[in-house]
Simulated assay, not measured.
Amino acid sequence: MRLLSVDHRALADKPRLTRSTDEPSHVRIEQWLRSRIEGGQLVPDDRLPPEEEFAAALGVSRMTLRQALGSLEASGVLERRRGRSGGTFIREQQIETDLTGLPGFTEQMSRVNVRAGARLVGVSRRRPSRSVATALELSGAKEVFEIIRVRSARRQPLALEETYLPCHLFKGLDKRSLTGSIYTIMRRDYDLAPHTAQEWLEPVLATDEHARLLAVETGAPLMLVTRTSYTVAGVPVEHAYDRYRADRTRISLRTSVSTQVSAELVADSGEDA
């Protein structure tokens, strides 16, 4: 943690707020701080100077400074901590996780220019639970491969993957290296790449085991993504539970209105006219 003074080099090139522009001072302060963060001059866990000193150095009122800091806090760039060692700190920036198009974790990180890592916790052959068997449409004594991995970004744990694949479709999978993209293995070695999926997103709390693997406190918020993936022929080939650290990820998904839905809306509108 760095305790920054108003003259620290990380706070150099302060905005010239006396110059007349169409933008209010608090907006220019916000933009300046964002540029220092994006440029790497301000890094996570840096503590900004006390508000009174900082406002005086910038030549603005504390109210103006608080407007800028409040906007940055609302967008997740800053965080305010209470107590004797509290203050306003630069926050670890969340990683955008785009689920559009059924990407694997490696592709998700590639989209934001972050190198993905994987640590294999365990792989085993087992009888599926009822929910997994139902999702994969398995019956009788058919087994699944259970693959548990911790996925990392910027060398820190980001997500815990719990993946189930039917053994009869992926023979010998447990003998392969599973520290890279599993989707690539499914496509390249088995010609059973996921093509479509149904996903559910819900907030959950970290259990003791989840907390240990993700390096968070027990009870920390996680975002659970439950997914069943299908081949182009409609065969279910994957059921997974991905748990993302809520403090390090921001999940996005691009959607659009389908042609069929649009046609239905137009038809309904015409009938009401």
Rank of each mutant, 00 (worst) to 15 (best):
I251Y: 02
G101A: 03
R80N: 14
G86V: 02
A56G: 10
R250T: 09
H26Q: 09
T207N: 09
V114L: 05
S75G: 04
S139H: 14
S139A: 13
L17T: 09
E30T: 08
Y164R: 12
R34C: 14
T100N: 08
G270F: 05
R212S: 14
C167I: 04
G101W: 00
L178A: 05
F145L: 14
V132M: 02
T64C: 02
Q93S: 01
V235G: 03
R155Y: 03
H26W: 12
D191E: 15
F145E: 14
L120N: 11
R154Q: 11
T218N: 08
R126M: 11
I95P: 02
T196P: 06
Q31T: 14
A141K: 15
E52I: 08
R115N: 14
E161T: 07
R187G: 15
S71F: 00
A233W: 03
D272N: 10
D7V: 04
Q31W: 08
P49E: 13
Y183D: 13
E96A: 06
L169K: 09
T207Q: 07
A116H: 00
L201K: 04
K142A: 11
L11R: 09
E162C: 08
S262M: 10
S131A: 15
D242A: 04
E162V: 13
S181I: 12
V204T: 14
V257D: 00
T88A: 03
A273V: 14
V123M: 01
L158Y: 02
Y230G: 05
E73V: 00
L173R: 10
R28G: 04
R34H: 09
D46N: 12
R62N: 13
T134M: 08
L138M: 06
R127V: 08
T97L: 09
T134V: 01
R250W: 03
G76P: 07
T218C: 13
G180S: 09
R155V: 00
S5Y: 01
P203S: 14
T88Q: 03
W200C: 15
R243Q: 07
R149K: 12
A55M: 08
P50L: 04
V235E: 13
G86W: 05
G70A: 04
E161D: 01
P194I: 07
G180K: 05
V60Q: 00
R125Y: 00
E96G: 02
A141T: 15
R245V: 02
H239Q: 10
L165W: 01
D272S: 12
V123I: 06
L205F: 05
E79M: 04
R176N: 07
L4G: 09
G40K: 11
G86C: 05
V225T: 08
A10E: 02
E79F: 03
I148E: 07
I147Y: 00
R154V: 00
S258V: 02
